[in-house]
Structure formats: structure tokens, C-alpha cells
Simulated scan of single mutants.
Amino acid sequence: MRPRIIQGDDQIGFYWSTPTGSPTSLQALVAVDDEPDRLMATHLEALDDALIIAAGRFGEVLGGGRPPADADQRDGLVELYRTLDRLCLEFATAQELTGFGVDLRAGKIVGTAALFSIRARLPLDLLGPAPFDGELDDPSIGVIGGFGEFHHVDPDTPWKGGRWVVRTEAGQRFPLTLAMLFFDSSGVNKDAARKEHRDALQAVVTAARSPAADPLTVSCAVDWLLYDWLMAHREDPDSAEIVFPKGYEDDAALVVSAAATSVSARATFDPGLLGLIA
């Protein structure tokens, strides 16, 4: 007998079961299975199916069309983000254990799952502040002239992250996103911006392992940078499907590791995630 996936009719997501029927995790299975690649492929396929079901059930809320209708829907969003977080972390941990590479399909699916998790936490007020929150100027209506720049919170402490801002000649700093740079700005070197953003996200992921890194600050930093990247790399403005431009296929691995870094950081203080990194 083989391990199998368990998912009830009304269940959000799924979990793995051993051949004898005991609940387990993907990383526990791949450590002893003769065909870990099959298990990981099955995990991704089931996660993709779970995302389709979640989009049908929570799509309007995840898309920002309306807030949760009632307490039951809020509870559903809590279960959704915690389940997706667990499944993303299981895949990332199993990938690290096996040494298998992260292909585009894995990056797309885990990226969409991470985006759903962030969008599910947004109406629940479970997202921490973005870098420089409360420190930037409020833009007025109309076109703003200035220079799009990536600003680090503290260049000597990369796990604190950073964000894009518009710096005007008068010295004001206005909020900016990677998507705005790509699609609403002129004279932008998109490849350079994409690389700078990628390097900043990678720096947070790497520095998050430091004993000095504060988990709450790390989670805020990586969530913002990952969310900003994902929103700028959707197939279209109405889609949650993530695309990787030609020549940037290696970014799939970063998306997976960034999603896992966020979950690991939040698992130190989110009661619903406690035990995931034990």
C-alpha cells in the first residue's frame, strides 16, 4: 500500500495519511519512501486542486470585492490560510530534504497558494505592517513626478526588508509597488527593477536564519516583498496565476523558499501554526 491524501467533501485542503491510516506529513513520507518524486508531484497536484476549490468558495473575498460575510466565513479564511501555509511548508521542507529542484509548476502553484494566504489574512487584520508603514507621504490625486527607488529599512539588517518608493526632487517619499513600476511608470528598466526586488527578497530569506532576526519583523518583511512580487507577476490583473518571465525561471525556487520563510516565522507566534516547525 502507498501513502494517500485525505480530503473530505467540506474540508479545506488535505493531509497525508500513512498506509496504515495515521496522519503524517509530506516531509516525513519522502524521508523513507522509495519514490519521493511521486509523492511531491501528487502533493502539488492536490494543492492545485485545493486552490481551485478555494477560489470558488472565497474568490470574491480574496479578490477584495467584499469583506467576509459572517463569522463562519471568517473562520473559513482562517482555516484556509493555515492549511495553505502548512501545505507550502511541507512541500518546501520535502524539497530541501530530497534535494529536488523547484520547477516552474511548483513555483506557480506555491506562489498562488502564498498569494491566497496573504489575501486571506488581509481582511482578518492578520498582516503586519509593510516596511516604512506610517513613514511615507500620502500621494495626492494625479501624476507624481519622481524617481522609483528601492529603500531598505536598514541596509545592515537585511531581514528587516524594504520596499519601493517614489522619491521626489522635493524630498518626499510616496508608496510604490513593483506592479506600478512595471505597468504605470515610464522610463523604467524592468529587468533591473525585477533583479533588485529579487535580490532584496533573497536577502530577507537568507538573513531570516540569523539568531538575531525577529520573527515578526521577518514575517512582515518577507510577506510584503513576496506579495509585491506575486502581484506584479500575475497572468493578468484578474488572475491569481503566477507567471515567470523567460530567463527568470530560477525565481520559482525563491518563491517557494520565501513562502516557507514566512510560514516558519509566523509559526513562532501564530497559535494556528504552532508545531509546524517543531
Rank of each mutant, 00 (worst) to 15 (best):
A170P: 00
I109A: 13
L39C: 04
R4E: 13
E90K: 00
K160R: 15
C88T: 11
M180N: 10
A54I: 03
P155K: 11
A203Q: 06
I277W: 09
Y227S: 13
R38V: 11
I118L: 14
D228N: 07
T168N: 09
D156A: 15
D199S: 12
V255R: 09
V32C: 02
A54F: 05
G56C: 02
F244S: 06
V110S: 03
A260L: 00
L178C: 00
G63H: 11
P211S: 05
T261Y: 02
E135P: 06
R234A: 03
D103R: 12
M1K: 13
T268K: 06
E90F: 03
Y81H: 15
S22L: 12
G187Q: 01
C88P: 00
A69H: 10
K195L: 14
I144A: 11
V204K: 01
Y248M: 11
P139S: 11
W164M: 07
R38I: 09
L176D: 01
T268Q: 15
A130G: 04
T24N: 06
V32T: 14
A221F: 08
D34A: 14
G272M: 07
A208H: 02
H151T: 11
T157N: 09
L84I: 04
V166N: 06
M40I: 09
L124G: 01
P67K: 03
Y15W: 12
V166K: 08
L26I: 03
P211N: 03
V102F: 05
D199H: 08
G111C: 05
G56E: 05
R234F: 02
S140Q: 10
Q11P: 02
T20M: 01
K246D: 14
E169K: 09
S210F: 08
R209P: 00
P211H: 03
K246C: 05
A170H: 10
V102Y: 08
A232F: 09
E249Y: 01
W159G: 04
R66Y: 07
V61A: 09
T168Q: 05
F91E: 04
Q11D: 15
V143H: 02
G275V: 02
D85F: 13
E35W: 02
L181G: 07
P68L: 07
G76Q: 12
G162K: 08
G59C: 04
V78K: 12
F269K: 03
T24V: 05
A54D: 04
L47T: 10
W159I: 07
R74N: 04
A207S: 15
G142P: 06
T217Y: 00
P211V: 08
L29F: 12
Q11W: 12
V255N: 11
D10W: 11
E196Y: 04
M180A: 15
Q73V: 13
L178P: 07
Q27W: 04
G107L: 06
L230N: 01
P67C: 05
S140G: 14
D199E: 15
A28C: 04
P67M: 01
G21M: 01
D270T: 00
D125Y: 07
A41F: 03
A69G: 09
S185I: 06
D138E: 14
C88S: 14
P215H: 05
